[in-house]
Amino acid sequence: MSQPLLQVEDITAGFGATTVLHGVSFTVPAGGIAGVFGLNGAGKSVTMKTLAGILPARSGRILLNGDDITKLSPEKRVARGMGHVPQGRQVFPQLTVEENLRLGAYTLRRRDKGRYAASLDSVYDRFPVLRQRRSQMAGTMSGGQQASLSVGRALINEPSLILIDEPSAGLSPVAQLELNEVLETVAETGVTMVLVEQNVAFGLSLVDTAHLMQTGVVVHSAPVAELDESTLATHLGIGKVLQAATGRALADRQSVPPQRSSSRAGRAS
C-alpha cells in the first residue's frame, strides 16, 4: 500500500477553555476498517467531530487521499469522498426514505447526475427493505431500518471513507444484530471505514485494526489479531476486574477472522 487513505497527525481540539484531544494520531489504509475505542470521556466522539470538520482542529493535520483537508468545511469534506453514519443515525424523520437518499447523494448529483440512478439501485439492492419502504417517512421506521437508511444514505454518495459514530448506541440487542449485518455488508464493498464505539465487544467484531484512546490520546494501535486481553484492558483503562470479560470478547473476535475474510473474498468474486 503506497499511501494511507486517511492520515491523522497529532490533532488537538476542544471546546472553549477545555482541550479534549491532546495530539491524536493514527492512519487507515485504503480498504481498512479501523476502530477507535475508549471509555466515556476518552475523546472518541470529539475525534469524530474533528475528522468530520464540525469541530476545528487547533493543531495537527488530517490528510484524505494525501490531500490536506484540515481546514475544509464538513460539506467540502463530503464532496471529497467522506461519508457519515452519524451517532443516533440522524435520518431526516419528515422526509421519505427516497428523499433521504436523494439528499445523501447531494454532492454526487452535483458531480455527475447520471450516476445517481445506478447508485440508488445498488443501495436498494443492498438494502431491499429501503426499496420496499421508499415512500415511507423515515421517522416512522424501526431503529434497525433507520440504521440501514443512515448507512445507505452514506453509501449512495460513493464515498471513499465512511465515518461511523457509535452505531450500536441506543439500539436493542436485536437491532444491534441487524446493524452488525448491515455493516458487514458495507465492509464487503471494500470501502474504508472508521468506526467509533463504546461497546468494545461490538466494535471488535467488525474492525481489523483497533486504536485505543484514553484521555485524549491514542495510547495503543494494533491489528485486532495481535491484541491480547491485558493490553486491551490496560489501554482502555478499565481495570483488572473487567479484563476477563474483555478477553472473552477478544477471543470470540480472534476466532472469526479466517471465516470472515473467506466470506468476504467469496462474495467479492
Binding site: A79, H84, L103, G104, Y106
Partner: peptide, 27 residues
C-alpha cells in the same frame, strides 16, 4: 422545495442541521 435537492436540504435543515452538513449540503 421537495423537487430540488437544495430545497430538500432547506426542509431537512429544520429537522437536523448537523446531519444536513454531514450529507454535504452547505448550511
Amino acid at each position: 422545495l421537495r423537487r430540488t435537492d437544495f430545497g430538500l436540504g432547506i426542509l431537512a435543515a429544520a429537522q437536523d442541521p448537523s446531519a444536513v452538513r454531514l450529507v454535504g449540503v452547505p448550511l
